[in-house]
Design a protein around this nucleic acid. Sequence first.
DNA 1: ATGGCATCGTGTCGATGA
Length: 259
Amino acid sequence: MKIATYNVNGVNGRLPVLLRWLKEAKPDIACLQELKTSDEKFPEQSLKEIGYSSIWHGQKSWNGVAILTKDGYEVEEIEKGLPGDPEDVQSRYIEAKINGVIIACLYLPNGNPAPGSKFDYKMTWFKRLLTKAGRLIKLNLPVVLVGDYNVVPTEMDAHKPERWVNDAVFFPEPRAAFQKLLKQGWIDAIRELYPDQKMFTYWDYFGNAFKRDAGIRMDHFLLSPDLGKRLIAGGIDKHVRAWEKTSDHAPVWIEISGK
DNA sequence: ATGGCATCGTGTCGATGA
């Protein structure tokens, strides 16, 4: 089973790129972030026409997450919105059970400018995620905690770490929180497959960042321990970042053995 | 220290992102 994640940065503006990538990559499950659309304007029909069913948690203009599945899979929606703060109106979390696997699709707050209130929100959200992740891993079920974490875990995950030291994605606090997730037992799938390689999932639009390969790795697949044993392949669809009208992120995918 | 570039909305610029 192939599972992918893609921060589309506007699902309607990006629709041609999204459809082209789906037809090419053919993931069984695709988790999307930064839909930037209200629920009403989610392009359900266009995705249906190429064989994907969707569940989504949208929000006008900002944020938004979705889980797409190839027709034929049964999707049991579990939750929209991350628990822990009823006042939080931002759409950044959606969870479903598909084919016996719990898929938690998330878009962690960026947190810039840091320090400040947005950074505080990032860390509060991260603490709620740690609580949620701790509960999920205790279920002893196959779980995928996947999406745009807005965290560059280590220096190896940045082309030029110095460029990011004043950015919330590279601040010590979110990096420490990411390490806490790993300590819970989650496996960073891409790092597991490529322990020594610089692997990027995001490149700035400006300064020819993609051509210079001046990227960072912020989109992550965290796998529950049992799923980690079923990990057989994974990668980054870097070529998609070179397409016309493309997102600043590239899709990331993994292949899990079994049904 | 800043901007670079791109998205969305009801706009022709501001807010947001990273």
